[in-house]
Simulated assay, not measured.
Amino acid sequence: MQITAAQVKELRERTGAGMMECKKTLTETGGDLEAAIEAMRKSGMAKADKKADRVAAEGRVEIASEGSNAVIVEINCETDFVGNDDNFRAFAANCAQVALGSAVDSVEELMAETVDGQTLEEQRTQLVAKVGENVQVRRFQRMNVDGVFGAYQHGARIGVLVGLNGGDEALAKDVAMHIAASQPVCVDESQVPSEMLDKERAIFKAQAEESGKPENIIEKMIEGRIRKYLAEITLVGQPFVKDPDQTVGKLLEASGASVAGFIRFEVGEGIEKKTENFAEEVMAQARGA
């Protein structure tokens, strides 16, 4: 019997289980949705049903590398307490190692990979049941380096991979550490997205026009602010964190090196976190009563 995408979607919404597990269980139950839900509840896979839509913005970043190949993975949970749990840490490390050793391109494909007779999705579901929180593998990215490779982790929350043309491992690690601290958008001016630059230029122009100065002076003010902005967001333009008297660009130049590329992950970046006010919650309940 052919299992449709709509069936898989409905089962996933009702149980919170992964796509591959939903399809597998529907196949085993001949497409019977209620039987599939019951089977998943019995196996513990549906214990994530109440947790799947909860915000998971904590967790950890894991890095795995071998030779010139490396991967960085972000795995999320709901609290930093679970983020430091040994079971969660082991699952995160396992995900990184599997991603490093596979050729998958998406999180969905990664979760379908099998380790010790279980898919990563099955391991994730069991972990949810054990720790009592929503757990999600959010993203991963690989780096293949022909030159010098550097990695840096700031605790469990920030991870950086960087590849250099020239230089050595010590320099690569220093640059990775700088990227972790200073959050550059890209390597140099040539990589700055045009829409980002246009947006900043429009803001600077509006601010400069309020000064009432002549047009030629305004243009100089805008260009000066653009140069300062580019120095702030580009890796080579930023003051080096370990020696602010020189830029990262000058540091690289002194070693005859350049940056081939970098990846920076920070736990929870871009995830909208729910903020709760306990006093307001109590007042709302009192008013409702």
Score class of each variant (00 low, 15 high):
T4F: 01
A5C: 07
Q7C: 05
Q7D: 05
K9H: 10
E10Y: 00
L11H: 05
R12K: 12
R12W: 02
E13H: 01
E13C: 06
G18R: 01
M19H: 06
M20T: 13
M20Y: 05
E21I: 10
K23S: 11
T25V: 14
L26S: 03
E28K: 03
T29S: 08
G31H: 00
L33Q: 05
I37S: 02
M40F: 04
R41N: 14
R41M: 12
R41W: 04
G44M: 12
M45F: 14
K50D: 08
K51V: 12
D53N: 15
V55Y: 05
G59Y: 11
V61H: 03
V61S: 01
G67D: 12
G67I: 11
G67A: 07
S68E: 15
S68C: 07
N69Q: 15
A70V: 10
I72W: 01
C77A: 08
E78R: 04
F81T: 14
G83H: 07
G83A: 12
D85E: 13
D85I: 07
D85T: 14
R89I: 12
A90M: 06
F91G: 02
N94K: 15
N94F: 00
C95N: 08
A99C: 06
A99V: 10
A99R: 00
L100Y: 07
G101P: 06
G101N: 14
A103W: 06
E108I: 13
E109A: 13
E109M: 08
M111H: 09
A112M: 02
Q118E: 15
L120N: 04
E121C: 10
